[in-house]
Simulated assay, not measured.
Amino acid sequence: MSPRPKNPGRTDATRARLLDAAVTTFAERGFHGSTIRDIAGGAGLSTAALYVHYRTKEEVLYQISRDGHEETLALVRAAIASGGTPGERLERLFRDFTRYHAQAHTTARVINYELAGLEASHRAQVHAIRRRIEAEVQDLVRQGVATGEFDVTEPALTTTALLSLGIDIARWYREGGNWTPDELAERYAKLALRLVGASG
């Protein structure tokens, strides 16, 4: 068993600085183009300080990827559990999903487009979370089809299209562009309803 940190608050703050620096570094240079020295320097720390918290650069990416996907899964589940018709829940879900991918676009870009940098066991764990996200959304689409609110012949393909629409925001979104996160959230929520052929 590892000893408890003497100052857990300080330890958590240092980890947060390292993860923030890693997100910026991976987004700018890609996982394979980044070094431990780059990450530590971005956090204002020595490489030795980084190794106190993470054994490898890959372990840093895994932490970012796992946390980001778990946060997304929680967001999806909260929207679906919020009540209302399938259409109302889908609209709420994609409003939140879109806003998250715009507001946290740098982090979202790393967790969605740097997965190849993960070792096999870590990549499998992250993909398992991604499958749970997809299953939750697909189940909601199927509920809408069952009630007659959605006109969808291929729920699985439609779900892939819906999620891809939101995830891709992280690739191109930048602050100061044509749309704010809230504006995008409203537009994409309506696009999601169109994709499922929502009635009414």
Results as ranks from 00 to 15, higher is better:
Ala79Trp: 00
Pro8Cys: 12
Ala120Glu: 13
Ile167Phe: 11
His101Thr: 11
Ala156Thr: 13
Tyr113Pro: 00
Ala128Glu: 12
Ser34Lys: 03
Ile111Lys: 01
Ala124Trp: 05
Phe31Ser: 06
Phe94Trp: 07
Tyr188Ser: 07
Arg142Ala: 09
Arg99Lys: 14
Gly148Thr: 01
Thr14Asp: 10
Arg95Cys: 08
Thr147Arg: 04
Thr25Lys: 10
Ala13Val: 09
Gln103Ser: 13
Ser2His: 14
Asn7Leu: 09
Lys57Leu: 10
Asn112Cys: 12
Leu75Arg: 09
Asp12Gln: 12
Tyr188Met: 14
Ala49Lys: 04
Glu186Tyr: 04
Arg99His: 14
Thr24Ser: 15
Lys190Phe: 07
Thr160Ser: 10
Asp20Phe: 02
Gly30Arg: 14
Arg187Tyr: 03
Asp151Asn: 09
Gln138Leu: 08
Glu71Pro: 01
Leu115Phe: 04
Ile64His: 04
Leu140Ala: 03
Gly177Cys: 02
Tyr113His: 11
Arg130Val: 13
Asp12Ile: 05
Val141Phe: 01
Arg187Gly: 00
Gln125Pro: 02
Ala13Thr: 11
Leu115Met: 14
Asp12Met: 08
Val145Ala: 08
Leu163Val: 05
Gly83Ser: 06
His122Pro: 01
Gly144Phe: 00
Pro3Phe: 10
Ser34Tyr: 03
Gln103Thr: 15
Tyr62Phe: 12
Thr56Pro: 03
Pro5Leu: 12
Lys6Gly: 15
Leu191Glu: 08
Thr98Phe: 00
Leu157Gly: 07
Leu140Tyr: 02
Lys190Asn: 09
Ser82Asn: 09
Val23His: 07
Tyr54Arg: 05
Val126Asp: 00
Arg99Ile: 07
